[in-house]
Amino acid sequence: MWMQRLKICLGAAMGLSHLHDPHGTQQRVIHRDIKSANILLDGNWNTKVSDMGLSKIGPANQSQSFLATNVVGTPIYVDPMYVETGILTKESDVYSFEVVLFEVLCGTQDMNMRSQEIFSEIMYQCLLRSCSKRSKMSQVVEKLELALQFQQGISNPEEFKELVKSSMANEKEYKWQHVVLLK
Protein backbone atom coordinates (compact mmCIF):
# COMPACT_ATOMS: atom_id res chain seq x y z
CA MET A 1 0.00 0.00 0.00
CA TRP A 2 2.74 2.50 0.98
CA MET A 3 4.78 1.50 -2.06
CA GLN A 4 1.87 2.34 -4.38
CA ARG A 5 1.28 5.66 -2.59
CA LEU A 6 4.93 6.58 -2.99
CA LYS A 7 4.80 5.79 -6.71
CA ILE A 8 1.69 7.96 -7.11
CA CYS A 9 3.34 10.85 -5.24
CA LEU A 10 6.50 10.46 -7.31
CA GLY A 11 4.50 10.53 -10.55
CA ALA A 12 2.66 13.69 -9.51
CA ALA A 13 5.92 15.34 -8.42
CA MET A 14 7.51 14.48 -11.76
CA GLY A 15 4.57 16.02 -13.60
CA LEU A 16 4.76 19.23 -11.56
CA SER A 17 8.53 19.36 -11.94
CA HIS A 18 8.06 19.13 -15.69
CA LEU A 19 5.61 22.05 -15.59
CA HIS A 20 7.90 24.17 -13.39
CA ASP A 21 11.17 23.45 -15.20
CA PRO A 22 10.46 24.09 -18.88
CA HIS A 23 13.62 22.46 -20.28
CA GLY A 24 14.67 25.10 -22.77
CA THR A 25 11.38 26.88 -23.39
CA GLN A 26 10.82 30.44 -22.29
CA GLN A 27 7.77 29.74 -20.11
CA ARG A 28 6.82 27.68 -17.08
CA VAL A 29 3.38 26.63 -15.93
CA ILE A 30 2.10 27.18 -12.40
CA HIS A 31 -0.88 24.93 -11.71
CA ARG A 32 -2.57 26.98 -8.91
CA ASP A 33 -4.95 24.20 -7.84
CA ILE A 34 -2.86 21.22 -6.75
CA LYS A 35 -4.99 18.96 -4.58
CA SER A 36 -5.71 15.26 -4.20
CA ALA A 37 -8.75 15.46 -6.48
CA ASN A 38 -6.57 16.80 -9.31
CA ILE A 39 -4.12 13.91 -9.18
CA LEU A 40 -5.68 11.14 -11.21
CA LEU A 41 -4.73 7.55 -12.00
CA ASP A 42 -5.24 5.69 -15.25
CA GLY A 43 -6.04 1.99 -15.56
CA ASN A 44 -2.36 1.10 -15.07
CA TRP A 45 -1.98 3.30 -11.97
CA ASN A 46 0.00 5.94 -13.88
CA THR A 47 -0.30 9.35 -12.29
CA LYS A 48 -1.90 12.24 -14.17
CA VAL A 49 -1.88 15.87 -13.01
CA SER A 50 -5.20 17.26 -14.20
CA ASP A 51 -7.47 20.31 -14.25
CA MET A 52 -5.25 23.01 -15.63
CA GLY A 53 -8.13 25.50 -15.82
CA LEU A 54 -6.65 27.83 -13.20
CA SER A 55 -3.03 27.49 -14.33
CA LYS A 56 -0.89 30.46 -15.28
CA ILE A 57 2.08 30.68 -17.61
CA GLY A 58 5.03 32.67 -16.37
CA PRO A 59 8.55 33.50 -17.54
CA ALA A 60 11.15 30.80 -17.04
CA ASN A 61 14.27 32.66 -18.09
CA GLN A 62 14.73 34.23 -14.65
CA SER A 63 15.97 32.69 -11.42
CA GLN A 64 13.02 34.19 -9.54
CA SER A 65 9.75 34.60 -11.40
CA PHE A 66 6.36 35.50 -9.99
CA LEU A 67 2.98 36.76 -11.08
CA ALA A 68 0.71 39.19 -9.25
CA THR A 69 -2.75 37.68 -9.61
CA ASN A 70 -6.09 37.14 -7.94
CA VAL A 71 -5.91 34.34 -5.39
CA VAL A 72 -7.69 31.20 -6.57
CA GLY A 73 -7.56 27.53 -5.63
CA THR A 74 -9.02 25.23 -3.02
CA PRO A 75 -8.68 26.98 0.37
CA ILE A 76 -6.94 24.31 2.46
CA TYR A 77 -4.34 23.74 -0.27
CA VAL A 78 -3.55 27.37 -1.11
CA ASP A 79 -0.16 28.77 -0.10
CA PRO A 80 -0.64 31.27 2.79
CA MET A 81 1.97 33.62 1.29
CA TYR A 82 0.02 33.67 -1.99
CA VAL A 83 -3.16 34.48 -0.03
CA GLU A 84 -1.45 37.30 1.89
CA THR A 85 0.39 38.94 -0.99
CA GLY A 86 -1.41 37.90 -4.18
CA ILE A 87 2.02 36.96 -5.56
CA LEU A 88 2.06 33.59 -7.26
CA THR A 89 5.29 31.57 -7.58
CA LYS A 90 6.03 27.98 -8.48
CA GLU A 91 6.67 27.51 -4.75
CA SER A 92 2.93 28.08 -4.26
CA ASP A 93 2.39 24.76 -6.08
CA VAL A 94 5.07 23.20 -3.86
CA TYR A 95 3.13 24.22 -0.76
CA SER A 96 -0.09 22.77 -2.18
CA PHE A 97 1.68 19.53 -3.03
CA GLU A 98 2.88 19.30 0.57
CA VAL A 99 -0.73 19.25 1.73
CA VAL A 100 -1.31 16.33 -0.64
CA LEU A 101 1.76 14.56 0.79
CA PHE A 102 0.41 15.08 4.30
CA GLU A 103 -2.90 13.50 3.27
CA VAL A 104 -1.03 10.52 1.82
CA LEU A 105 1.02 10.04 4.98
CA CYS A 106 -2.01 10.07 7.29
CA GLY A 107 -3.28 6.60 8.05
CA THR A 108 -0.40 4.73 6.39
CA GLN A 109 1.12 2.03 8.57
CA ASP A 110 3.06 -0.41 6.37
CA MET A 111 6.18 1.63 5.70
CA ASN A 112 9.91 1.33 6.05
CA MET A 113 11.07 3.71 8.81
CA ARG A 114 13.79 5.33 6.66
CA SER A 115 11.32 5.78 3.81
CA GLN A 116 8.89 7.48 6.19
CA GLU A 117 11.63 9.77 7.56
CA ILE A 118 12.62 10.93 4.06
CA PHE A 119 8.98 11.42 3.07
CA SER A 120 8.30 13.46 6.22
CA GLU A 121 11.45 15.52 5.72
CA ILE A 122 10.46 16.59 2.22
CA MET A 123 6.88 17.15 3.31
CA TYR A 124 7.92 19.62 6.02
CA GLN A 125 10.46 21.28 3.70
CA CYS A 126 7.60 22.08 1.31
CA LEU A 127 5.53 23.56 4.13
CA LEU A 128 7.98 26.29 5.15
CA ARG A 129 6.37 29.72 5.29
CA SER A 130 9.14 31.39 3.33
CA CYS A 131 8.81 30.54 -0.36
CA SER A 132 12.54 30.91 -0.90
CA LYS A 133 13.26 28.16 1.66
CA ARG A 134 10.86 25.61 0.17
CA SER A 135 12.16 22.76 -1.94
CA LYS A 136 11.95 22.90 -5.71
CA MET A 137 9.82 20.21 -7.34
CA SER A 138 12.96 18.63 -8.82
CA GLN A 139 14.27 18.22 -5.24
CA VAL A 140 10.93 16.73 -4.17
CA VAL A 141 11.26 14.21 -7.02
CA GLU A 142 14.77 13.24 -5.86
CA LYS A 143 13.65 12.75 -2.25
CA LEU A 144 10.58 10.73 -3.23
CA GLU A 145 12.79 8.51 -5.41
CA LEU A 146 15.04 7.98 -2.38
CA ALA A 147 12.04 7.18 -0.14
CA LEU A 148 10.83 4.67 -2.75
CA GLN A 149 14.32 3.16 -2.92
CA PHE A 150 14.35 2.54 0.85
CA GLN A 151 10.80 1.20 0.80
CA GLN A 152 11.81 -1.32 -1.86
CA GLY A 153 14.74 -2.38 0.30
CA ILE A 154 17.29 -1.36 -2.31
CA SER A 155 20.51 -0.21 -0.71
CA ASN A 156 22.49 0.19 -3.94
CA PRO A 157 21.54 3.39 -5.85
CA GLU A 158 22.70 1.86 -9.16
CA GLU A 159 20.33 -1.09 -8.66
CA PHE A 160 17.50 1.39 -8.09
CA LYS A 161 18.35 3.35 -11.25
CA GLU A 162 18.27 0.12 -13.27
CA LEU A 163 14.89 -0.78 -11.77
CA VAL A 164 13.46 2.61 -12.72
CA LYS A 165 14.96 2.38 -16.22
CA SER A 166 13.52 -1.07 -16.81
CA SER A 167 10.05 0.11 -15.82
CA MET A 168 10.16 2.86 -18.48
CA ALA A 169 9.99 1.71 -22.06
CA ASN A 170 10.39 5.21 -23.47
CA GLU A 171 11.69 7.97 -21.18
CA LYS A 172 10.11 10.86 -23.10
CA GLU A 173 6.73 9.16 -23.10
CA TYR A 174 7.13 8.49 -19.37
CA LYS A 175 7.73 12.16 -18.59
CA TRP A 176 4.71 13.28 -20.57
CA GLN A 177 2.37 10.63 -19.17
CA HIS A 178 2.42 12.50 -15.87
CA VAL A 179 0.98 15.73 -17.25
CA VAL A 180 -2.48 15.94 -18.74
CA LEU A 181 -3.71 19.36 -19.79
CA LEU A 182 -7.46 19.58 -19.28
CA LYS A 183 -9.49 22.77 -19.54
Rank of each mutant, 00 (worst) to 15 (best):
T47M: 04
C131Y: 02
G43Q: 13
M123N: 01
P80W: 11
S120F: 06
K48R: 14
S63G: 00
V180K: 07
H18M: 13
G43H: 12
L67C: 02
L16D: 06
E103Y: 09
E171Y: 06
S120D: 09
G153E: 01
L16E: 08
Y124S: 10
G43L: 11
Q151E: 15
S65K: 12
V72Y: 05
K175P: 01
S130Y: 08
I8M: 14
K165D: 06
M137P: 02
L163F: 10
D110W: 06
V99E: 11
A169V: 08
D21E: 15
C126M: 07
L88K: 10
F160Q: 09
N70D: 09
S17P: 08
F102N: 14
L127M: 11
Q64V: 15
M1Q: 10
W176F: 15
S92F: 10
Q177P: 00
I76T: 07
N44Y: 04
D21A: 10
S120A: 13
L19G: 09
I118D: 01
D110I: 06
Q125E: 14
E158R: 03
M1A: 14
S120N: 07
V94K: 10
S36T: 15
G15C: 13
K7Q: 13
G86D: 08
L101G: 06
S63R: 12
V179F: 03
G86R: 11
F97A: 12
G73Y: 01
A60G: 15
G73C: 05
F66W: 12
G24P: 09
Q139W: 00
T74A: 01
Y82A: 03
V179A: 08
I118Y: 02
L144S: 01
